[in-house]
Design a protein around this nucleic acid. Sequence first.
RNA 1: GCUCAGUUAGCUCAGUUGGUAGAGCACACGCUUCACACGCGUGGGGUCACUGGUUCGAGUCCAGUACUGAGCACCA
Length: 939
Amino acid sequence: MEIPKAYEPKTAEEKHYRRWELAGCFAPEINENRDAPKYSIVIPPPNVTGSLHMGHALQHTLMDVLTRRKRMQGFRTLWLPGTDHASISVQRKVVELLRKEEGKTPHDIGREEFLKRAWAWKEKYGSTITDQMRREGASVDWSRQRFTMDESLSKAVREVFVRLYEEGWIYRGKRIVNWCPVDKTVISDAEVKDETRKDGKLTYLQYPVKNSDRKITVATTRPETMLGDTAVAVNPTDERYQDLIGKTIELPLTGREIPIVADEYVDAEFGTGAVKITPAHDPNDYEVGLRHNLPQLVIMNEDATMNENTPADFVGLDRFVARKLVVERFEELGLLEKNEDYEVTLPTCERCKNIIEPLLSEQWFCKMDEMRDLALNLMREEKSPQFYPEVPNEKVYTVWLENLKDWTISRQLWWGHPIPAWYDENGNAFVARSFEEAAEKAGTSDLKQDADSLDTWFSSALWAFSTFGWDGEITETEDLNAFLPTDVLVTGRDIIFLWVSRMVMTTLKFVGKKPFDDVLITGTVLGKDGKPMSKRLNNGVDPLDMFDKFGVDATRIYLASIATGADIRWNDQQIETFRNFANKIWNASRFCLLNSDGARVDYYFLNPQAEVAEIKNLIGDELTDDFDEEDEEYLDKIDPEFAKDNPKENLSIADRWIISRLNRTAIEVNRALDRYFYHEAVSRLYHFFWNDFCDWYIELVKDEITSEEPNIWRDAARSRIITVLEQALRLLHPFMPFLTEELWQMLPETGSNLHNPAYEGAEKTIMLADFPMGDANLIDERAESEMQAVIELISKARNIRAEMNIKPSERVSLLVAANGDSQRVFAENESQILKLARANDLRLTEKLEAPRQSARAALSGSAELAIPLEGLIDFAKEIERVEKELAKLNTEAQRLNAQLTNENFVSRAPQEKVEEIRARVVDIEQRTKTLNQTLEALD
RNA sequence: GCUCAGUUAGCUCAGUUGGUAGAGCACACGCUUCACACGCGUGGGGUCACUGGUUCGAGUCCAGUACUGAGCACCA
């Protein structure tokens, strides 16, 4: 077999995905077990405008690891993919394309034509991200792929809108909203992001009082809005302004006269104690305006230029230009009191980052009270959904719900779900599932549909059940029954409000079920500079570049190695670690494969007792006369006399040790993944594979399996190592699907017989192999401690060699003093010890008898090691080495003794603990004694 | 302003019932050891931000301080 020396990720990556997909491995239908428990995840739908970024790669990896493991465990597993229509993003792309290619605006071509272009755009570019998901190895069921504007999902949107309207939760009203002048649409509170700027100004403007030489000073961060002022307010108790309440102000620049009103809202302590009131451009002013019956004067256009309600020389000016001009004019009039630096917090549009303009506007709103309570009750009564990590996410979620305000759901966009409302010529609204229904309600067909569309998050809110076929008319489907609630939602913390909470609310209301059990909130992958990746900072890392450079598997397992929920600063060196790990797996497998003649993958090599039990179960406990020929080959397996000569049942300490380590690892990996502790699972696998399997097990059995002589003992050893490897590959598969599949296919005698019973008929693939759960009965504490002693002996010998500068080619002798039991262990592993310590003989005695010219080391269990170094020993150096060791022991002894002489410790600490410390002190004393003798001998 | 999180080896980070401080990388020394130099062996390196408290015992629990970050509120 020709196997390249270095792992080439591309080769494996190109080979397997399509095969898996064609074989139907991703669909739940592959599972042949009728009674299999289900496991389901619905993907957070990426935007059709998006291309894969590190956040996706992270989330997809985490979802795929869970999905692949559960699938291997025999669950009926579904990971449902899909995409989101992303109305603002697509709209912006299409507008831009239109401008560039044809120099036209959307209004030039009209709504219908615009939507055609938008669909075309979606068809052309909308699958970028789903193609990239194939590259990631994401085992999603493409046959169930959804898009938020699919007919069935759109129908669900209309249905939900109509029902909420009919129940009075959705209404149309005039309110101050967040207006994005660049996207030219309203956005919801949740889509506004506050940004603090230090270069703001607080401008103090003087307003002359009519028929008086008094002026009243107001402060503002947005001077241009004074053009829309319809009052000045002061606190009713403010003595400074008592005589001015009820007077009139001649508003400069406008020629308008406005009243001075008294309102509790004004804080007398802040600024000048007088506030300009602009009801149409500020939410607080709006409220004040309502209380005092003030006019609502809108002074801006939808692109945030000044409108015809402003003086002629302002009309058409951008808001920021107008701002400067207002200040200039006030200065000219001598009415500018001051203009001081001020730190301001500006509302910005989450999507386009431009500054939001609060604006009076008529929109559709959704009152959340009822659905909010459903969600809060679910949390209170069932503590659901369960957040991971629970702190701080559960609180963030709950507090947000408690303070929830009405949701602005209309958008001035064409791309999206049209609002199912029609107006007659008098402007009466008819909300209906279709035009026909609306016409019936209105009693006329002379209706015009609402020009706006719905917030993209409105359809996303239904994603948990609309993806399973719920459309309002159809409310039960096989998938809905089978897969809802899903097991876990994996997503980022930025959309807990925008999405997670809303799915909980709508699913409870419309399906009467919770959408998911768990919510796993991932951290943010930051750039190398520790800041969130962004185009502006140019600190982004493209996952596809990482795939090319380090391989998909290395990238995946690196992403999984990040502690759950923690932010991570991107670092190429970390991913390189896992690229090297992939190569290590490749080469260890290569070694096993190069020595695999006569070997086969057979789990019973790792658990012969299970085979014996199975055979006994098969043929009965007693060997009766009707024992037929066919059974004879089993004889050696159940008869202790024969078993002696059966290599399958004669396990060395090293064999029992690696089997124990393997099972311990499997148990820990499963335990960790059950708690979404991916990083712990990765760490366990990494160290099991690299340290236990490669550094020790391969080295310990190397001679045996590379022996030239083919015989049953060698073949058994080969089968054992290759079976351990195969188990390790299964454990690694959810993290590194391509590498493990590539290698697994090369192993001798792998087939669908290794599959989980649920997939017996399927084409052979590791992704359907039974996931090892680990068997606690195969954890062998004794083998582990015995092997630990062997490892310690070898390590100490190597340490002496390195510190004494003994050439690798120089063979040494090992003199070891140990008790009977330890001697047996060392003797059993003599050849391995000699090889790995580069020694040519090992002498085991009760008491150490070593020449003066020896280097020595104390081992655990009162054992001692000496290496005679006649002519080689550097006494000064050896003294130094031993003293260093003694110093270490001394520090520890002091600390432990301090504890033991502390009466409080001895009397109050658990007896167990005290005994443990005592035992350690004894051990340290023993070692110290040994080393002191060594020093004496050296003097 | 309120709330929360973080502060552990040069770097990036683990450390869940309080009981000998860990990993990877980097660093030093030595290796053509027949799977792997994307490697092998050995080693050095930390008063776990600071102050106080609880405890026989604190990286771990409590209070406070400093710095970093996030969310919410305010923002005339």
